[in-house]
Structure formats: structure tokens, C-alpha cells
Amino acid sequence: MELIAGESKLTFKESESLLVMEGSMRLANLMEYDKVSLFIMECAEKSPSKLTIDMRTLSFLNSSGITTLSMCILHLKKKLTPSLLFLGTTDYAWQDKSLKNFTKLWADAKVQID
């Protein structure tokens, strides 16, 4: 399963419950992020216990994108499943801050930064 959003691409490998986000995601507003939100929630549906979101090749995510991901986390928190694991990197400044906030939103959202 794949989704192209502006200059970024989301690829879901169902067998590994792995969602890879790559490129630079700067969609114009929250409404434009609806398709991203739907895609992530669909990936969550198809992941039985844990969904891994690999952002190590995502160079940029604007604040509307961070809000969208935050809303997905809050939504999954209510459902309790699947738990989340974010893979990040110190190469991109935005990741450290944003990924830390994700764990604040839901304790079952884990972050692993290389």
C-alpha cells in the first residue's frame, strides 16, 4: 500500500506492520492532511498488535503534519491497539522534538532514535 503526499511517500508493508515515511512533507493545511490521516489509520487497522512508523528518511514534517500524527496517536490511545513504535534519527532537527511529544501523548507510543 502506498500514498504519495506532496513531496513525500508513505509505504506500508503489511507483513511487517511497517509504515515507512520518506521525503519532505509540507502539505498546505490540516484539510490536506486528511488523506494521510486516513492512510495511517488504515495501516493501524491492518497491524494486529504493533505498528512501526519509520521516519528516518522523512526530512521535514510541518506543524499541520505533526498535529495530524498527534491526532492519530490520540485516536489509537482511545482504542488501546495497536501500540506504536516510531523510528527516528538525529539527522533531522524536527524529529527529536516532535517524537518526544508523541510519547507524551500516549505512553504506549515508543520512540527509538538512532
Partner: peptide
């Protein structure tokens, strides 16, 4: 970073 959270997103 450790002084707060996004404001208005959640009350939880």
C-alpha cells in the same frame, strides 16, 4: 521541549 506540550490538543 520538556516544559510542556502542544496546547489545545488534548485535555488528558
Amino acid at each position: 521541549l520538556d516544559l510542556g506540550m502542544y496546547v489545545g490538543l488534548t485535555n488528558d
